[in-house]
Amino acid sequence: MLRFRPPRADLLLALAQTTVAVLLGQESVTQGRPALDLAGYVLLGLVNLPTAFRACAPVAVCLLVHTAWIVYITAGYWPVAGSFSPMLAVYTVASLRPLRTSVACTVLMGAVWVYAGLLDPRSSMAAVVAQAIVWPAALWRFGVVARRSAKLARRLREEQEERARREVYEERGRIARELHDVVAHHMSVISVQSGLAQFVFASDPPTARAALGTIADTSAEALEEMRRMLRLLRAPDDRDGENPPDAPMPGLARLAEMVERVRAGGVPVELRVSGTERPLAPGVGLCAYRVVQEALTNVLKHAPGAPTLVELRYGPQQVTVLVVNAEPGAGEGVIPAKVVGGTGHGLIGMRERAKLYGGTISIGPRGGAGGYEVRLDLPTSPRTVRPEDDRER
């Protein structure tokens, strides 16, 4: 069931307007019009009080107000005393309803204005007609401007909300990529090493101890990266000054450390670096590091023991990262056939990172050479590195 409850501001405005109309009506005698009697007061109430509901039903209120005003004028009372409410009603319709409806209500007010002038033999019809055109038109124009401003404000608010939702979605995707890269890689190494330690625990204690040491180092590194991510996610006001500064994001300088860790997991990995090494933007280095990390994680999962090559090539304006499973006829590789072109989080993360920094990535079998290959090309020149690099710090 619909309930029409006027806003408090509109109710107070209607009461104030009625009070002013009654006070102004006391000047009717000085204007050569009959003094207000009970019927006059009732009609003034009918003209002004309905505006309390103008926001709920603007057109109906406008028609009701003008009908009461016509009766008030026909009874011979001074029209000016009841003119404020019709003006407010026309403005409200123009600010809330389509142009066709608001124009009709504006014409209605002008017509009633002319009708009041025709009933008064002392009126100058030229002045009355001019007022009947200018005042309704001005109120209509103010209402239309208010309607357009409100529409623009709503559109702006919707765009801001949509932008905020999109930024939240993008940030969630970035966090998901980071969590996947950290958890998947380190847990894969821990899983392989724990299996090795369990297998040789009794027969080869030194190897078991080495595997446990790798597990300890890997888990410590994973915890440190998780803590760093959590610190980045906390609001600045929540950080206390006693916390140590965030550790730098991993980059190509730690590539050898990651390769050594994977090699300890039983995968023969070789790292080659060609070209002139140079510092890269933090985001570019992180992108290359994460792609290598994901590729080696897939080696641990799908091709343990397969010889793998990680090659880093520094060019004049780009850096190329190559991860190749060179085992001929293995049937498995860096990216197994069942997930090439798939929708796994790792593949999505690789492609999104490459796209973010203006790079290209190819993932798939090596054709006649056998095995699988991941190739990432990232631009490093100042004109092509994006500003998002600095936000990855």
Rank of each mutant, 00 (worst) to 15 (best):
M249H: 10
E221D: 13
S274F: 14
L252W: 12
P248K: 04
E242N: 14
A222S: 05
V259F: 03
E277F: 08
M229T: 04
M258N: 03
E224L: 06
V267D: 07
V259E: 11
R228Y: 00
M229R: 07
C287Q: 12
R234M: 09
A220V: 07
V262I: 05
V269S: 02
C287P: 08
P236C: 06
E242Q: 13
P279A: 09
E260L: 00
A220Q: 09
G251V: 03
E225I: 00
G266H: 01
D246S: 11
R261V: 06
R263K: 09
R261K: 03
L271M: 11
P279D: 10
L286M: 14
D237L: 01
E225R: 11
D246C: 11
E260D: 11
L230E: 13
A264R: 02
V262T: 10
M249F: 06
G266T: 02
P250S: 05
V269R: 00
C287L: 13
E221Y: 02
P250Y: 05
L223W: 06
E260R: 06
L230G: 14
A264Q: 02
D240W: 09
E277T: 09
E260F: 00
L223A: 14
L255A: 02
A253S: 11
T276S: 12
P282L: 04
G283S: 08
L271W: 11
G265K: 00
V284E: 15
E225N: 07
A222C: 13
R231K: 09
A256D: 15
E277R: 15
M249C: 09
D246E: 13
L233G: 08
R234G: 10
R231Y: 01
D238E: 13
A256Y: 08
L223E: 15
A281L: 02
A253C: 03
V262A: 02
G266N: 04
E224T: 12
E225H: 07
M249G: 12
L286N: 15
E221T: 03
R263W: 04
P282A: 10
E221R: 04
A247H: 07
D240E: 13
R227V: 01
P236V: 05
P236R: 12
M249R: 14
V273C: 11
A247P: 15
A220C: 08
M258L: 11
P268E: 06
E225C: 08
L230Y: 09
A281C: 06
G251H: 09
E221W: 01
G283H: 08
L286D: 14
R234F: 05
P268H: 07
D237A: 08
L252T: 15
E225A: 11
L280A: 10
E242K: 09
R272V: 14
A247E: 09
P245R: 01
E225F: 02
